[in-house]
Computed example of a mutant assay.
Amino acid sequence: MSILGPVLIGLLYAALNSFIPSRHRRPFNALMVAGAGAAYLSGGAFGPLELAFTTVMTVVAFRGLSSWRWIGVGWLLHTAWDVAHHLRGEPLLPFAHDSSFGCAICDPVIALWCFAGGPSVADIIRRRVNRDSAGRIPSSG
């Protein structure tokens, strides 16, 4: 499986979040990380540990309602769970052998975006333009 695809999916996820108003963006992402925590429940590869992981992710998602940092932590925890399932041979999507591997590549991209505060694409461009213009010497004339 290519690494580029999952990275692009993570970037697309962040970009699509730009369409969610900023006041709703963090709660939406807290729900997404809670859902990710339950993604492997039906497979049951790790037995009762699957329930324990879902419980931990629910607590992390709840904390994420008020903190982007916790949402980022949730995506990194999910990355570890993806790796465990990939190594065990129990992928997220049973019909896609490398789906857990791809998820383990995608999730840290989303986590980095969360650690940055979940900015919209417009916010990122605005910051870049402001930073670039702040470093210029004004011309006289």
Rank of each mutant, 00 (worst) to 15 (best):
Y13R: 07
D123R: 02
L112N: 00
S133W: 09
R25N: 00
R23W: 10
F53V: 12
L49V: 08
W113L: 00
V56K: 03
R88T: 13
A14I: 04
R126H: 13
L76N: 00
L65V: 02
S100Y: 11
A34F: 14
P27H: 06
I20W: 09
G141L: 08
V109M: 03
W81K: 11
V73L: 10
S99P: 06
G118D: 07
R136M: 14
S18G: 07
A134I: 09
S140K: 11
T54M: 14
A111S: 04
I105N: 05
G72T: 12
S67P: 01
G47E: 14
P119F: 03
L11G: 04
M1K: 13
A45M: 04
L92Y: 03
L12T: 14
A39I: 13
D123L: 05
P91R: 08
G102V: 11
E50G: 00
L4F: 14
R127Y: 06
A38Y: 09
N29C: 02
V121E: 01
G89W: 10
D123H: 04
L77K: 04
A80E: 05
L92V: 07
A84H: 06
N29E: 05
G64N: 10
R131D: 14
E90W: 10
A14L: 04
S120V: 06
S66C: 12
G135I: 09
A80Y: 08
A15Y: 10
A61K: 01
V129Y: 03
G117Y: 00
I9V: 15
G5P: 01
L65W: 07
P108V: 01
S2C: 07
I20Y: 00
S67V: 01
Y13W: 15
D123M: 01
G44R: 12
E90R: 11
D98C: 06
M57R: 02
S99Y: 04
L51D: 06
N130I: 07
G89V: 07
P6C: 02
P27Y: 12
N130G: 06
L87A: 14
V56E: 02
P27D: 08
L8Q: 12
L4A: 15
R136G: 05
L49A: 03
C106A: 15
W75G: 02
G89K: 11
V59N: 10
V73N: 03
I125D: 02
F53H: 12
N130R: 15
P91C: 10
P108K: 04
C103T: 06
I105T: 11
L93C: 03
A104G: 11
D107Q: 02
I110G: 09
A34K: 08
T58M: 09
N29R: 04
A80P: 02
S100D: 05
I9M: 14
F115W: 13
L31S: 11
H78T: 08
A30Y: 01
W75V: 00
L76D: 04
V56P: 02
